[in-house]
Design a protein around this nucleic acid. Sequence first.
DNA 1: TCGATAATTAGACAGTTGGCTAATTAGACA
DNA 2: TGTCTAATTAGCCAACTGTCTAATTATCGA
Lengths: 94, 94
Amino acid sequence: MDNVFKALSDPTRRQILRLLSRGEKTAGELADQFDMSKPSMSHHFAVLKDAELISSRRDGQQIWYSLNTTVAQDAIGWVMDLVERSSGKRSKRK
Amino acid sequence: MDNVFKALSDPTRRQILRLLSRGEKTAGELADQFDMSKPSMSHHFAVLKDAELISSRRDGQQIWYSLNTTVAQDAIGWVMDLVERSSGKRSKRK
DNA sequence: TCGATAATTAGACAGTTGGCTAATTAGACA
DNA sequence: TGTCTAATTAGCCAACTGTCTAATTATCGA
């Protein structure tokens, strides 16, 4: 869970996820959308993969990345649980 | 939004939020639940406050912290939007 | 097999994070 | 005012992050 929120905390990575929400894209297509070197982009892909927010597959010379929504849903679940507990709280204060 | 996800990426801070989901607690009460120095805890409170995930009020010598669920809901919103876009995607691949 | 292309890995470096101890601030109360 | 308690701020340090350039790996096509 640490890795998921950490991955989400960078604006470049959130934008990558946005782009992938429309469907698979290659590393190059994604990198073209940012004013950043390809190795830096590659690093962001690795962080997102480590958090399992994205998956990848190779097709010839290209690597296709896609969004992994189940992990994103886990993150939603954690925060929602927090909010729900809060709304159902009974004051235990003394 | 950066600050919110960054704040959520630390397990100590997520546990603080959990504890606060049951209602207001003082800095001291919270700090007692962790095997960590009070200044370190104070640092975590500051990170959470900066992200506006918690609010604080002073009552005499004590500072009472409470969960701010609206910002947590904003975070849920961002991730949910991502998942929804994804489920409604039409393949734009060429 | 050679050269071109797509992408990652390696290594450097400045800035940030998360922990600590010591010092300081703020309030309560005799 | 003086002292005790609650909490934060200051300052230090090792580890981590995000960026870059240079080097490497993997694949394609002639």
